[in-house]
Amino acid sequence: MLQGFKEFIMKGNVIDLAVAVVIGTAFAAVVNSLVGDVLMPLISMLVGTPDFSNFLVFGAVKFGAFLTVVINFLLVAAAIYFVVVVPMNHMIERRNRRMGILPEDEPADPQVVLLTEIRDSLRSRQ
């Protein structure tokens, strides 16, 4: 039972989904701040107050609040990358090497490469 759970967790799709949810949540804050603190005050200056909460004058464009949210997003993204993605990639790489699976950029056995080239050459002649 625990082996099945370990296999489930080690799948790349689960980690990718978890990262996407966290990044999506952080990015939602960026978008909300852009809309609420930057765009809405600019629009309200042009059209008046179409039911804006706490309508403020020109000096109320909150670029500082937006910048804070963007920095928070970048920090969350960096934390997720260095704490989750990098260690997971190393674990997957070690597992693949243990299983004999080569990364795409590493050359395979020279005999396999030669046989693949011969096969491809024969296919192109037909």
Rank of each mutant, 00 (worst) to 15 (best):
L2V: 05
M10W: 12
M10Q: 14
G12V: 02
V14H: 07
V14C: 01
V14M: 11
V14R: 05
A18T: 06
V19K: 02
V19E: 08
V22I: 06
I23R: 02
I23S: 10
I23V: 07
T25W: 02
T25R: 03
T25H: 04
A28T: 05
A28S: 07
A29E: 05
A29G: 11
A29V: 04
V30S: 15
N32A: 09
N32V: 01
V35C: 07
G36M: 02
V38P: 13
L39E: 13
M40K: 01
I43N: 13
I43T: 12
L46H: 03
L46W: 06
V47W: 11
G48L: 14
P50Q: 09
D51K: 00
N54P: 15
N54W: 10
F55I: 09
L56V: 10
V57Y: 09
G59H: 06
K62C: 12
F63G: 13
G64C: 12
G64S: 13
G64W: 11
L67P: 00
L67E: 00
V69R: 06
V70P: 00
I71T: 11
N72F: 01
F73D: 02
L75C: 03
L75A: 06
V76D: 02
A78L: 13
A78M: 12
A78Y: 11
A79W: 04
I80F: 01
I80A: 04
Y81W: 09
Y81F: 10
V83G: 08
V83F: 08
V84M: 00
V84A: 01
V86D: 11
P87F: 14
M88A: 05
N89K: 10
N89C: 07
N89H: 07
M91L: 10
M91F: 11
N96C: 03
R98D: 07
R98H: 14
G100R: 04
L102P: 06
P103E: 10
P107D: 14
A108W: 07
D109Q: 09
P110C: 01
Q111V: 08
Q111D: 04
Q111W: 02
V112T: 12
V113R: 10
L114R: 04
L115F: 12
T116G: 08
T116W: 15
E117W: 12
S121M: 13
S121K: 06
L122C: 04
L122V: 07
S124L: 08
S124C: 12
R125T: 11
